[in-house]
Design a protein around this nucleic acid. Structure first.
Lengths: 255, 255
DNA sequence: TGCTAAAAATGAACACGTTCAGAAAAGAAC
DNA sequence: GTTCTTTTCTGAACGTGTTCATTTTTAGCA
């Protein structure tokens, strides 16, 4: 009944390392901190990629980064936080690239897959690390900036896609965009989980399953009333070229 | 690139404790093991519920169960596995109760909510523990028996619900039941995660969101060609308050 | 240049989960 | 009972992530 509120992630990392462009001249302090952070990122990344997350010890990272063991935890809340330090930048880049590509698509499902594919490629590079990242993303509060914030932006981007589709007449106007976005996001996370977490599925199976789930989300489970032309152009502006259900798009090429 | 295959959960727990009814007379060995297991379960449950999962140490459990520290790990693979030892029985019961109730329902959404509600109630009893359980369920391979097996059975039960609805004509006959079940399960896990993991939502909000997601899954996002639906309340004439739509059933009462 | 206060770095120390070589208990055979 | 084999138990020991009192570095000022 009691339940401790979890180790309650430490309030904030101690040295406030500058986030980029500052006044022209930086003090010694600033420079040292920046360099240290860089070294930490590099060391962590190298070791994670070579040995995996669990097999890499904090002390190893410290040694390679030339810092004392305690210092590491002034720059990262804990070991898992290092994953974010290391990969946030790349994730942000992928996110923006995906958003751009998706914006050019004219089908909701295609657009979402473009959005998702960037991350799927990223995760595929190292499934073991990705599992930990995903786990953290799905179970850590999304506030407190960092990569959790990205997740929120992600959902916003999905919602934007839905809204565009709605304006196109591809999505019913009575649907709340955020609700639809959440639904699509649910399929995304489930299939990612089956692939990276539960590990009973390959990457391509996950992509295929995800795409089918999105199509099913478009169609709905309920039976279509009668297969006849909606001759009344009252409701949707354009009759939305929605043909049969199983829209066989060729599997999208990825990098 | 390398990536260690994770600490690779230990092959199997050492003493094979009998799973219930055996030959009438049991040897001293069997009895000792059974008693020890019982003591472990009791101790772990009490401590977990009083102090929470993280705050309970393995040594505390051993002390309370009157066993050596090493012995604990002959009965549980690791600390998290204790959660399954402790809660599997109860989870199984809830699952069966839910299945029965769901079988009596004549609407898919209602039926699924009945199925889900059992677990939602269970999780609500102790959200912190539930978070860990959920995390384990979603990220540990589902084979190797235990509670993971339950997850599989769960999805099967959902698929069965879909099939029944299909026979009733509530679900389109062209839909593959497992695909539909997976989709519904995706909504279930997402909303559970928002509630227990990311912690930005209350239990009732999660239930409501889940129900709406299921309804949206029924309807689909695509625009309906003509409003010739059997008995759907058509488009909401009344300007349904704040974006919410498709509110059909009154929020189900739960136990 | 010294002097002082604030910021940052340090590594020994802590508490934890987990292991494993050896000890103890239970069964089998006589 | 006595001996031997097999199963089960045990707690000291290991390696881990993380903390914190102390030391070192930097900045501001005279």
């Amino acid at each position: 009944m009691a339940s401790t509120p979890n180790p309650a992630r430490k309030t904030r990392v101690h040295p406030k390392v500058s986030t980029g462009e500052e006044a022209i001249s930086e003090g010694l302090r600033e420079r040292n901190k920046r360099e240290k952070l860089t070294r930490i990122k590099r060391a962590a990344r190298q070791l994670f990629e070579k040995q995996g997350f669990e097999a890499t010890t904090a002390r190893q990272i410290c040694q390679r980064a030339n810092i004392g063991t305690g210092t590491l935890f002034l720059y990262a809340r804990d070991k898992r936080d290092l994953l974010f330090l290391v990969f946030e930048e790349e994730a942000r880049r992928l996110f923006e690239e995906g958003s751009e590509r998706a914006a050019r698509s004219s089908s909701l499902v295609d657009g979402l897959m473009l959005l998702f594919d960037g991350f799927i490629d990223f995760y595929a590079q190292n499934p073991e690390l990705s599992k930990v990242i995903l786990q953290e993303l799905m179970f850590q509060p999304h506030d407190e900036g960092g990569m959790g914030g990205l997740t929120v932006e992600y959902q916003v981007a999905v919602a934007a896609q839905v809204e565009r589709a709605q304006q196109r007449g591809e999505v019913d106007s009575s649907v709340a965009p955020v609700a639809a976005a959440t639904a699509c996001f649910a399929h995304y996370t489930l299939w990612l989980g089956s692939w990276l977490g539960v590990r009973m599925i390959t990457r391509e199976e996950a992509r295929k399953g995800l795409r089918q789930a999105l199509e099913l989300q478009m169609q709905g489970l309920a039976p279509k009333p009668a297969r006849k032309r909606p001759k009344q152009p009252a409701r949707p502006k354009r009759p939305a070229k929605k043909g049969a259900k199983a829209r066989r798009t060729k599997t999208r090429k990825k990098s």
